[in-house]
Design a protein around this nucleic acid. Structure first.
Length: 571
DNA sequence: GCCGTTTTCGGCCCGACTGTTTTCAGTCG
């Protein structure tokens, strides 16, 4: 799913990394990064824009970056980047992955010691070669060594579903401290990002130093990385990093705003504030003209004073939410409560753990009106996929349960395999008797992009298919998304009224927010489903709702917010 | 390198913490 715009963005980011190390002007580096960020999500086709001579209509693209984009479109290279690549070996870039090693230190390790890899940096540190550099002493050397150990020990990011309970316990522990008036989780966790790199925590207290001190002594804390008057960073027993910032309650709103981020959102928001005569920080709004700073006790106040509606954390990714908040056009995001049923659930007829009745009861307990039992089909042998005869048997089971459980409704469904040639592994005649047909690719995920696209589009064209499951096939930390033409899939889905699934399984979260947004923009409808293989997993739903919200989805964009009669009428 | 109903030049987001320093640079979020 790499588009030309993504490739250009990647090249510009790399250029920024190199330029930063080479000591280029900070604002030049930032200009490259800003342009890269904008390009990565730019909806228009880059080649068409270039041909029309309209590249500079993209914000952040001026004369110099336009030239670089043209170079890339023409030759696949950017001259300035090629030159820097020759000057600085690519391995030097990787040094920045070491905590506390930034661009300047990385460059000096290379320029003065010839270090081009993390392994070499480790050897040099052990040999005591780093401490002799001006400005770096024994402690810096030890810090680098420790950073490398940390890097080797920690996996990059953890799943939202893993971090949330840990964060919840820490938040409770903070709230239980006597001087703490309020405590909240912030950062990417509060924005409900699919994965988080650390846990950010905030506390409102008249005695920040005391709270910071107490925090560093929580039993879950394995190691204190840094601790000051108002901030601390620790490593928890399970390897996660947690950051705390504490301030007096008068500042709590700006503190929450600041620590929730994202970084990109904050940068743009501060620019917005500056344009209106304020400097914004975690302490509040300070008039640029001088005068008393204005502390903000609530987050709403921060946005309000800047002439903006409060922005839901899930949207704070600098994807146009500030402009939308200014013009009163923020979406009314879909909520957990709006979901009336789960449309992708496996029973013990295939590879699920629970009986259909157990699943139905679990759905009833969760307040749902309906559930679709979507067992695997025969070609997925490993999952005890059902053949035509077993579907007929299962139908009798479902009919009997529906008679007993009404008005709750069990929908008879299947997760049908899309074969290599794009056909489905159940005959149309069987599909036509099902209430819900979910089509999915489980094999040939690494196929050529054109072929994968063609398979999905062909499945969409089958008149019985209602939903495409986990459309990109990514599994976080295990498998990248399939290479295919997402826009072509969106076009086909819109044309045939097929919904795309937002799969709520914590390590799938597929579609993610970015894809959801594109789908909505193209008029494609969504469903949010758990893909549960046991009754407990119906609780994954909020993670899927989170992805939909991050993609600006409203209830009307999501089919399973509808009552069952209005759900089936379109299918 | 980008940008402009105050500007085509002089701005550009803000502050904590650390280490190695006598005032600050680098890193991070």
């Amino acid at each position: 799913m790499t588009t030309i715009a993504n490739s250009v963005a990647a090249a510009l980011r790399e250029l920024a990394d190199y330029a930063e190390m080479a000591g280029e002007d900070f604002y030049k580096v930032r200009a490259y990064r800003r342009a890269a960020d904008t390009l990565a999500t730019w909806p228009e086709d880059l080649r068409a824009l270039a041909e029309a001579g309209r590249l500079r209509t993209i914000p952040g693209v001026g004369e110099a970056i336009e030239k670089k984009i043209m170079q890339f479109l023409g030759t696949g290279h950017i001259e300035a980047l090629d030159r820097l690549r020759e000057e600085i070996p690519p391995g030097v870039l990787t040094l920045r992955r070491i905590p506390d090693v930034g661009p300047r230190t990385a460059f000096r390790l290379y320029a003065e010691l010839g270090i081009t890899s993390i392994a070499e940096a480790e050897r040099a540190a052990r040999a005591g070669q780093i401490r002799v550099l001006k400005g770096l002493g024994e402690r810096s050397e030890a810090r680098i060594l420790k950073g490398i150990e940390l890097l080797n020990r920690l996996s990059d990011r953890v799943l939202l579903a893993v971090a949330l309970p840990v964060a919840g316990r820490l938040r409770q522990a903070l709230r239980a401290l006597p001087t703490v008036q309020a405590a909240e989780t912030a950062g990417s966790l509060r924005r409900l990002a699919p994965t988080v790199g650390d846990i950010d925590l905030l506390a409102a207290t008249e005695n920040p130093a005391l709270v910071v001190d107490a925090f560093t002594q929580f039993p879950e804390v394995a190691e204190v990385v840094s601790a000051g008057e108002s901030k601390a960073t620790v490593i928890l027993q399970d390897g996660l990093q947690a950051d705390l910032m504490a301030l007096p309650p008068a500042h709590y709103g700006s503190l929450l705003q600041h620590f929730t981020g994202s970084q990109a959102h904050n940068v743009t928001l501060r620019g917005w504030a500056r344009d209106r005569g304020f400097s914004l920080s975690e302490y509040g709004l300070a008039p640029l003209a001088g005068g008393e700073p204005i502390p903000c006790a609530t987050e709403n106040e921060v946005y309000e004073r800047l002439g903006l509606a409060w922005i839901p954390p899930e949207l704070r990714e600098d994807q146009g939410e500030i402009a939308a908040a200014a013009s009163g056009t923020l979406p009314h995001l879909v909520t957990d409560k709006a979901i009336r049923g789960d449309l992708h659930v496996h029973s013990n007829w295939s590879d699920g753990v629970n009986t259909i009745e157990e699943l139905a009861q679990a759905a009833i307990v969760r307040g749902y009106d309906y559930i679709a039992i979507t067992d695997h089909t025969k070609s997925l042998g490993v999952a005890h996929g059902l053949d035509e005869a077993r579907f007929a048997d299962r139908q009798r089971d479902i009919d009997a349960l529906n008679a007993r459980l009404a008005p709750f409704r069990i929908l008879s469904g299947a997760e049908v395999e899309v074969r290599a040639d794009g056909s489905l592994d159940l005959p149309d005649e069987v599909l036509s008797r099902l209430d819900v047909v979910v089509a999915a690719i489980h094999t040939g995920l690494r196929g050529e992009a054109d072929r994968v696209t063609a398979r999905i589009v062909q499945a969409i064209q089958n008149p019985h298919v209602d939903i495409i499951a986990h459309p990109t096939g990514r599994i976080i930390g295990e498998r990248a998304a399939m290479e295919f033409d997402f826009d072509a899939v969106l076009e086909a889905a819109a044309a045939h009224g097929v919904a795309l699934e937002v799969n709520a399984t914590p390590n799938r979260l597929d579609l993610d927010g970015e894809h959801v947004r594109r789908a909505i923009q193209r008029g494609v409808r969504l469903v949010i489903s758990t893909d549960a293989h046991r009754a407990d997993s119906l609780d994954y739903m909020p993670f899927g709702v989170a992805m939909a919200r991050r993609g600006w989805a409203e209830a009307a964009d999501v089919l399973n917010t509808r009552p069952v009669d209005r759900l089936l009428v379109d299918w």
